[in-house]
Amino acid sequence: MPYRWTDISKTARRLELWPHRSLPRRGFAAFILATFALITVPLYPLLGTFVLWGLLPFLLLVVAGLWWALERSYRDGEILEVLTLDPDRIHLRRTARRAAPLEWEANSYWARAEMHQTGGPVPCYVTLTGNGRTVEIGAFLSEDERRTLYGELASALAEARATGTP
Rank of each mutant, 00 (worst) to 15 (best):
A162M: 14
W5Q: 08
C124F: 11
A162P: 08
W67S: 14
L85F: 02
D88Y: 01
M115F: 03
L23W: 01
Y3V: 04
W110M: 06
G151S: 09
T134E: 00
R72T: 10
L70W: 02
V126C: 10
A64Q: 06
G48W: 03
L61Q: 04
F58D: 11
A139Y: 06
P123I: 12
L92T: 05
T95K: 10
R14V: 02
L55G: 04
R14N: 13
L38I: 05
Y74K: 11
A139L: 10
P2N: 10
A29V: 04
G27H: 03
S73H: 12
K10R: 12
W104Y: 04
G54L: 13
L141R: 01
R147D: 12
T49I: 09
L66I: 13
E16Q: 13
Q117A: 15
Y125H: 13
A12M: 15
T40D: 13
F28E: 10
E103P: 05
G27Y: 10
G48E: 15
L59V: 01
R21S: 14
D88H: 02
G65C: 04
R133N: 01
L56H: 03
F36W: 14
S9I: 13
R21Q: 15
L141P: 05
L157V: 00
E78R: 09
Y3K: 01
R72Y: 12
C124I: 09
V126L: 15
V51W: 09
S9L: 05
T163F: 15
L102C: 11
L43Y: 02
R13E: 11
S142K: 07
F140D: 04
P2G: 01
D88N: 00
E145T: 08
